[in-house]
């Protein structure tokens, strides 16, 4: 089942490249959203592969917290452009 994780790592490289190359801050935020979701889904896959419940619980918490952090950051950056 390792090939699933290898494929997910390859998919993770795409937003990392985007965050590196694009100079627009909103494109970077999009890449961050993509990476935050992908990493926590990868944690979930690892927890299922290893039958490790604690990691699964933590992955679900990180999946929701990542979105909350993204919303906070987006609001702060949006207000910076308005003033």
């Amino acid at each position: 089942m390792d090939f699933i994780l290898i494929a997910m790592i390859l998919a993770l490289l795409i937003p990392i490249y985007e965050a590196w190359q694009d100079n627009d801050i909103w494109q970077k935020m999009l890449a961050f959203a993509s990476i935050a979701t992908k990493t926590s889904i990868m944690m979930l896959v690892v927890s299922v592969l290893r039958d490790d419940w604690p990691i699964g619980v933590v992955a679900v918490i990180i999946l929701s917290v990542g979105n909350a952090g993204l919303m906070l950051l987006a609001h702060l950056i949006r207000r910076m452009n308005e003033i």
Binding site: I25, F32, I35, V46, L73
Partner: peptide
């Protein structure tokens, strides 16, 4: 500096993935 902060957030996401894969669920959280 703002771009660096967004990339720092990405680094945090990758770091928590690494900690979780190495088995340290509390450190990842």
């Amino acid at each position: 500096p703002y771009h660096a902060l967004v990339i720092r957030a990405i680094l945090g996401a990758v770091a928590s993935l690494v900690y979780a894969v190495l088995g340290a669920a509390d450190v990842a959280l």
